[in-house]
Design a protein around this nucleic acid. Sequence first.
DNA 1: TCCCAGATAATACGGATGTCCGAATTAATA
DNA 2: TATTAATTCGGACATCCGTATTATCTGGGA
Lengths: 194, 194
Amino acid sequence: MREKQDQHQSQLIINAAYKHISQRGYANVSLREIADEAGVVLSQLNYYYKNKEGLLIEVVRMTARQYMVEIEEILKRGTSSQARMINLVKYFQDMLITNPNLFRLLFDLTNMSMWSSTFRNLLNELFDDLANLIEEYVLTDNANFVNISNTSNKTLAQVIFGSLFGTSIQIILNPENKDLIQAMNIVEAIYTTN
Amino acid sequence: MREKQDQHQSQLIINAAYKHISQRGYANVSLREIADEAGVVLSQLNYYYKNKEGLLIEVVRMTARQYMVEIEEILKRGTSSQARMINLVKYFQDMLITNPNLFRLLFDLTNMSMWSSTFRNLLNELFDDLANLIEEYVLTDNANFVNISNTSNKTLAQVIFGSLFGTSIQIILNPENKDLIQAMNIVEAIYTTN
DNA sequence: TCCCAGATAATACGGATGTCCGAATTAATA
DNA sequence: TATTAATTCGGACATCCGTATTATCTGGGA
C-alpha cells in the first residue's frame, strides 16, 4: 500500500528535509517545499515533528548518528595515534569534496546555535562527541603532541577540531581553492611531532 | 534641529542595525525593530539603503573598515614576525571577551555567504584582506614557520586564520570555557618555531 | 518670497510562512 | 465484524515582513 519503496512518511520527510536544508539552508527552506519534495501533505510535518525546529533537530540527530560511527571506524583503522590523526584529516578532505552539503548543514546549525539555546545544546552534544573521539583515538600518546602550559587533552582536541572546522568553512566558501584543501595537511603535521 | 547629537539618520540606522544584528542575528531582526531602535521611521531604511541586504552590506563595510585598521596597528607594534603573531592571537583573545558581538556578526555573515553570492563576495573581500595582513606582517620570515609540501604563504595564512576562526566559534558558543581561550595560544606556538 | 530638491513621515500592499483544526481514511484490536 | 486509535488529507488562519507609494515637511538658493 505504501507509495515509495514502502518507506514511512516520517522517513520520507526527514530525507527531503536533509536534502533541502543542507542544500539551501534552514532559514531559506519552507515546510511546504520539504513536504512537496517528500510527496507528503504539509500538515504531516507537524504531525510527526510538531515544529520546524523539531524537524531540524531530528534531521541533525539522524545525520550525526550516521557519521559519528563512520568517523569512529575511520579512526579505528589507524595503528598509531599519528596515523589516526592522518586518517581524520583525510576524512575531512574527502568529505569536503564528495559531501560538502554535510558541512553546510553543520555550519548552518552552528550559526543558529548562536541565537537559539535549543540548537546550542544540540550542537554542544555533537561537538563534545567529536572532541571526545579525537581525544580518545588521536591524543592517546601525549608525547607525540604539543603540550603547552598544561592544556588538557580535551582542550587540545577542541583546538584541533577548531582548526579543521575553520579551514573547512573557507573551503566550502571557496571550493576552487584546491590549495587550501591540500593545506589541511598542515594541521595534521602541526599537532604531531615528527 | 537634529535630534540625537546632531547625527544623521543614516548613521543612526547603521548603529542600530549593528547593535541588533550582531546581538540577535540578521535573520532574526526585522527592519521595524532597527527603525525603532534608531528612532526613525521604517521607510527611511529603504530610503537610505534600499534593501535589508543593502543595509547589512553597509554595516559590514563600516565595521570591517574600523577593525581592519585596528588590527593593522596591532600588528605593526610587533618587532618580529613571531611577536606580531603573538599580538594577533592576543587580539583575538581580548576581543572574544570584550566584544563577542563582533564575532557573532562575522559568523553570521559567513553563514549567509553559503547561500548568497552577494554576501559571499563581500566576505571573500574581507577574508582576503585578513589573510593578506597575516601574510604581510606575520609570515615575513619564512624560516620561522612550518613549511610543508611547498604551501604558499597565502595558503598558510588562510590556515592560520581558519584555526583562529574555528576556535573562536567554539568559544563564542561556550564562553564559560576559559581553557579554550587560553588554548588559542597553541595556535600561535604551533606556527612558530621556538 | 517662491520654489524645489532632499529628507521625513504615515500607511498600505502583496506575499510567504508556520501552525492549527476538522474531516476522511486506513490500520489495529478485540 | 465492530470499535477504536493512528494516520492522512485539505484547507484556512493569523501574523509578520520587506517593499513601495504617496503625502508632508524643511531648508536653502534664485
